[in-house]
Simulated assay, not measured.
Amino acid sequence: MAGRNILVTGGNRGIGLAIARALDAAGENVVVTNRSGEAPEGLRAVRCEVTNTASVDAAFTEAEELLGGPVEVLVANAGITRDTLLMRMSDEEFDSVLDTNLAGAFRCARRAVKGMIRARRGRIVFISSVVGLYGSPGQANYAASKSGLVGLARSISRELGGRGITANVVAPGFIETDMTAALPEDRQKAYLASIPAGRFGQADEVAAAVRFLAGDDAAYITGAVIPVDGGLGMGH
């Protein structure tokens, strides 16, 4: 399993960084993307704006030069939020989230499968969210974008499964990050009360699920949604 060429989008912080570090520690050949191109300590990075096709193509070309070959595993993690109530949500707030979270993942997957088809093997892991399956007030744009990743993964699975390419989805719940730490205490307590496991998850727990789906043991798993949410979504 170790030593494959892996690209993690949005791998400079939070869950994406945890995924990149876990794969790197497992002996994989990892490059991350971010908007600045600055590399986290101990990792290599390329600049990428996932809303721009030319930027995606350039990022893959640069990453493949660093990796010494085509990308064999894509972890599509880059995403944004623009939360507001439906009645107040502008077209731009809706479109920008869909363009980054869903269309951005599509652009990266489209570019990645070129090399995977030639090699007749590959792994694509989309990072979704429990919100995409469970819903959340004030997040119509985010939930729609994250739900769309499931349809994207399953269509890729049916289209390219015979070529040794898998496409799966990991759907994290509430994970301990800077964002959750900044929530008011009463809000944190309310969220915790809805989670059967009684705690927020760790980014490393999401990374472990990605490592499994990216590995040889998951060769017969495709089109699946793996929740890492402490039971919050209950399989939705």
Rank of each mutant, 00 (worst) to 15 (best):
V206N: 12
A182N: 11
V206G: 09
S129Q: 10
A39Q: 10
G27S: 12
E64N: 01
L67E: 07
D178L: 06
Q139C: 10
V30C: 08
C108H: 08
N12H: 15
G138R: 00
A182R: 15
A214W: 09
L67S: 07
L133Q: 08
E205S: 08
F174R: 01
I127C: 09
A58Q: 03
A203F: 12
G27V: 06
P184A: 04
A109N: 07
V125A: 04
G27T: 12
A209D: 05
L86M: 08
A143H: 05
P227K: 02
L160N: 07
V228T: 02
V125D: 13
S145K: 05
E93L: 01
R199D: 13
T222S: 15
V50L: 13
A207E: 13
E49C: 03
T100C: 04
A143R: 07
P184L: 09
A171V: 02
M116I: 07
R44D: 03
Y220H: 02
V50S: 11
E205Q: 13
R111T: 15
R88K: 15
V225H: 06
L66E: 01
G235Q: 11
A109K: 06
L67A: 05
I15Q: 14
I175K: 09
D216S: 02
D24C: 04
T100P: 04
G164Q: 05
L160Y: 05
G42H: 06
E65C: 10
Y142D: 00
A2S: 15
T100R: 04
N12C: 11
T100E: 05
G223H: 15
Y142Q: 00
A76G: 13
S128A: 04
G164W: 04
L152C: 00
S128W: 05
Q139S: 05
L213A: 02
T100Q: 11
L85C: 00
A218V: 06
R121H: 14
T180S: 05
V97L: 00
T100S: 07
I124R: 10
E72H: 04
E176W: 13
N141S: 11
F212L: 13
R163I: 04
D217E: 14
C48K: 02
V125G: 08
R110Q: 14
N52M: 04
Q202C: 01
I221N: 01
T81G: 03
P184R: 10
F174C: 00
V32E: 02
L232Q: 09
E38I: 14
G233N: 10
S194P: 00
A224C: 03
V169E: 02
A109G: 15
V75R: 14
V31Y: 01
E72N: 05
A54E: 14
A208F: 01
D178Y: 03
F126I: 00
F200P: 08
S36E: 03
G235N: 06
P184W: 12
M179P: 13
E176Y: 07
A197G: 00
P172A: 08
G37C: 11
A214V: 08
N77C: 11
S36I: 06
